[in-house]
Design a protein around this nucleic acid. Structure first.
Length: 187
DNA sequence: GTACAGATTGAG
DNA sequence: TCAATCTGTACT
């Protein structure tokens, strides 16, 4: 595998990190074995100005406090009482993050649709509340890596999904995915 | 204390 | 198109 991503990567501009995350690998380590997925779809959330963000207006709650951590931490939460959503914090001080919406399963090599959606990503990686605030730079059970070989692909920009309440902010093209990739969540 | 919406998903 | 299912938030 490639090289682990450090603090420098995650503390860059959020929209930049959202695009750069495409094609990177998430490594989830267990006592026995690993699960590996390639990121193929992301969305950026730019609190406090972004109405779709949980940190809109500088709001701080017990649930979203992890969004304020320095870039490279996990902000994970339960949605609709059913599904976990994996976010990676970015920037230094601002409460901004990137939602990981879809992965291509690398190991185990599985159905390409097994992680095609934010809820499914967390099922695939076996993530839950215990990863709240986890530091991807230092953690021994989950981290990100660069691919070894150079890969090229086209990045598609689109409107974010499921935020109809966010007014003008729902029009922002802050969803990014690899063009024509079969593991992306929606067409 | 009570009501309600939500960064979803899979089945019909 | 709809139900499953629960937490944060804004009311009473």
């Amino acid at each position: 595998m490639g090289k682990r991503l450090g603090r420098k990567f995650f503390t860059q501009n959020t929209l930049l990190v959202s695009r750069k995350l495409l094609g990177k690998y998430i490594i989830r380590r267990f006592k026995k074995g690993k699960i590996v997925g390639k990121i193929v779809e992301t969305e950026a959330y730019l609190g406090p100005k972004d109405k779709a963000s949980h940190a809109y207006g500088g709001k701080i709650t017990f649930r979203n406090i992890a969004e304020y951590l320095i870039g490279g931490h996990i902000y994970i939460y339960l949605i609709y009482g059913l599904y976990w959503q994996l976010n990676i914090t970015t920037d230094f001080e601002r409460p901004e993050c990137v939602l990981i919406r879809a992965l291509e399963p690398i190991r185990p090599n599985n159905d390409l649709k097994i992680a095609s959606g934010p809820g499914k990503v967390c099922q695939f990686l076996k993530l839950d509340q215990s990863f709240y605030g986890e530091d991807l730079v230092n953690s021994k059970r989950i981290w990100l890596e660069r691919g070894k070989e150079k890969t090229s692909f086209k990045i598609v920009k689109a409107k974010r999904i499921g935020i109809d309440y966010a007014g003008i902010w729902k029009e922002k093209l802050w969803r990014f995915y690899i063009k024509n990739h079969p593991s992306v969540s929606r067409k």
